[in-house]
């Protein structure tokens, strides 16, 4: 269960923030990549060019994962290009902040679909290929990007927390149903990581994070990517259905 230049890795939300760092981490090992992005063509082009310069094989896939039919198409495209799939990293996600009582369901139905339903659909559509990968002794792992909001709750982010909690549940469901077939599924719960999502925090909130953390700083996307690498590879071969926190000891 090693990762090398023959490993096929699918990463959603791959061109920005944590997803970009994950892409770079797996590219460094020469893995064959399939990268899903939603709309940012410029970022996708830049990512593709960088990977081409590094001689990394990559399939860029533009897809709106809010449309569940697109999930099947994404998996089909990866398999058509590479002939299989070894690792699925369900990283894509977005927030919808606001007072929950004042938030109409129309404002978060897309969020629930993209953050929760789509990763579930992608994982299930990928499952037969991941089972094949596991049986061939290649890999067969899923990494779900959850959040500390799922574990500790977060005011102003009720629907987001619900979707990330659901991902933790999905991690358990997949681990139970596919663990015996050799596929491992684990989740990561990042805390405050230096990305676009966190850049908008006001200084007061930033101070609060530092004071509440055992490691008083924001995390770096590369630190999350390193944890994803751990969960995707044989280094974590006895981890299945778990949630790993990468949060600098927030609230400890």
């Amino acid at each position: 269960m090693t990762m090398d230049s023959t490993s096929i890795v699918l990463i959603t939300g791959a061109t920005r923030g944590i997803g970009r760092a994950i892409t770079q981490r797996f590219a460094r090992e020469g893995c064959r990549l399939a990268l899903v992005y939603r709309a940012d063509e410029a970022a996708a082009r830049e990512t593709r060019d960088q990977l081409a310069d590094a001689r990394v094989e990559v399939e860029m896939i533009r897809a709106d994962l809010g449309d569940l039919c697109a999930c099947g198409s994404v998996i089909d495209r990866v398999v058509a290009r590479y002939g299989g799939l070894d690792v699925l990293i369900n990283n894509a996600g977005r927030t919808r902040d606001g007072a929950f009582a004042a938030m109409s369901p129309e404002r978060y139905t897309g969020l629930v679909r993209e953050n929760l339903s789509a990763p579930v659909a992608l994982a299930l559509r990928a499952a037969p290929h991941l089972v094949d990968s596991a049986r061939a002794g290649r890999s067969g792992t899923v990494v779900m990007m959850a959040s500390m909001a799922a574990l500790a709750g977060k005011e102003g982010e009720v629907p987001y927390a619900a979707t990330k909690g659901g991902l933790i549940g999905a991690t358990r469901l997949l681990a139970r149903n596919f663990g015996r077939l050799g596929v491992r599924t684990n989740a990561l719960a990042p805390g405050f990581i230096r990305t676009d999502m966190v850049d908008v925090l006001d200084p007061h909130m930033y101070e609060h994070i530092l004071e509440a953390s055992a490691s008083p700083r924001l995390g770096d996307p590369a630190e999350v990517a390193e944890a994803v690498w751990f969960l995707a590879t044989g280094a974590s071969s006895y981890c299945n259905g778990t949630v790993h926190r990468v949060d600098g000891g927030f609230l400890r």
Partner: peptide
């Protein structure tokens, strides 16, 4: 299903 349970708890 664990999905519903965990989503409820987090929410």
């Amino acid at each position: 299903t664990p999905i519903a349970n965990q989503a409820r708890a987090a929410a």
